[in-house]
């Protein structure tokens, strides 16, 4: 096969059949997700260790996250996973408009999450809930550890979400322009796997950061 003979209806190099490309895309994504699990797993392990060492501080600090923002964002992200799933399965049946609508909603919900998160961050800033500053409002000092995890975990999650929104918009563009045979390529399912990971991680972060101090 020479490069000249490749056109949109054929799988990407080096694949010879669409089924193989689909299989490889989703399999590759699963492997990548395993890697992501270690990334967040290391942080959650650290969280578990520090919470075991300083249970009281974690209880005090955990009550100072804003459960309204957290809960509304949880609902938003879960809904976005539903719209993502609709897009992924509609792609298999070639329903172009449904796919584009699903992807559009997913990206919009993702952005809504980030906007709300931004408001929440502003509030945290105003309350001086920033580890390392002299006038940290909470006692004992180990409450700063909780908020170190809060900023790191939600920050990294937001970075993942930003990348995810970019990926969703890119795929939407590919579908709209018909750049590849998206009904065959498995791109949508790969994208959905990544999006659901962002969602699943949040499902763990929500109780760790918002519910723990409110027992």
């Amino acid at each position: 096969m020479t490069p000249e003979s490749v056109h949109a209806a054929e799988p990407n190099q080096p694949f010879l059949r669409w089924s193989r490309q689909r299989e490889a895309t989703t399999f590759g994504l699963w492997i990548f997700l395993a890697s992501e699990m270690v990334f967040f797993g290391a942080l959650m392990m650290g969280y578990a260790m520090h919470r075991y060492l300083w249970p009281d501080a974690f209880e005090v600090a955990g009550a100072h996250t804003n459960i309204w923002y957290g809960s509304i964002n949880t609902a938003i992200l879960l809904t976005s996973s539903a719209t993502m799933a609709v897009a992924a399965w509609a792609a298999r049946d070639g329903l172009r408009r449904t796919v584009l609508t699903g992807l559009g909603l997913t990206a919009a919900l993702g952005m809504a999450f980030l906007v709300l998160k931004g408001f929440e961050y502003r509030e945290d800033f105003n309350e001086d809930l920033i580890p390392g500053i002299v006038a940290f409002p909470l006692d004992p000092p180990q409450t700063q550890i909780f908020f170190s995890y809060y900023w790191m975990m939600t920050g990294i999650h937001a970075v993942h979400l930003t990348i995810g929104i970019g990926a969703v918009l890119t795929v939407a563009w590919v579908v709209a322009k018909g750049r590849t045979d998206w009904t065959q390529s498995g791109t949508l399912h790969g994208l959905a796997l990544y999006w659901h990971l962002i969602d699943v991680i949040w499902i763990f972060l929500y109780p760790l950061l918002y519910l723990v101090g409110r027992g």
Binding site: G46, M49, H50, L53, W54, A57, I130, P131, G132, I133, P140, P141, Q142, Q144, I145, S148, Y149, W151, M152
Partner: peptide, 20 residues
Amino acid sequence: MVVVERLFGLGLLDPARGGD
């Protein structure tokens, strides 16, 4: 963990604040 402590003052590795 090292970078965010140097840049932003998070304290996961700082024993003064209960970090390790």
